[in-house]
């Protein structure tokens, strides 16, 4: 690692511009897809596109693609713990109906 430039990866301008273009296209697709009836797939498509967009931002704008394993691990760790929060909370709510519970408001 050269200490002069801290070993930082400098992405070419074209990378940033093409990622920006991809994000714009994906945003358009999100809005377009929302107006098409895909049934249960509407939210899934919306979140999948959002996930792809977030991944592009993380990898290229935030340089995680070129970062240390520790940085990558930090990103994964945060998602892992959010996943625990979701999975275990929903484990309760998803099984609410099984014993003839009536969730409030329905």
């Amino acid at each position: 690692m050269s200490s002069g430039h801290s070993g930082v990866h400098v992405s070419p301008l074209s990378t940033y511009l093409s990622i920006f273009a991809a994000l714009m296209v994906l945003s358009a697709i999100t809005v377009g897809a929302a107006f098409v009836n895909l049934g249960a797939f509407n939210p899934i498509v919306a979140l999948a596109i959002a996930g792809v967009k977030a991944t592009l931002v993380i990898l290229f704008f935030m340089h995680v693609k070129y970062s240390s394993r520790l940085t990558k691990l930090t990103v994964v760790l945060s998602l892992f713990f959010v996943a625990i929060l979701f999975a275990e909370t929903l484990m309760d709510y998803a099984t609410r109906g099984w014993l003839n519970y009536t969730p409030m408001g329905q």
Binding site: V57, I58, F61
Partner: peptide, 24 residues
């Protein structure tokens, strides 16, 4: 920059979740 991009990512999720529920 990292902070700003993060704020951007939050919006990337907020937009479909708040604006695009059952638009069809």
């Amino acid at each position: 920059g990292l902070y700003w991009h993060f704020v951007d990512i939050v919006w990337i999720f907020l937009f479909p979740l708040l604006y695009l529920v059952e638009r069809h």
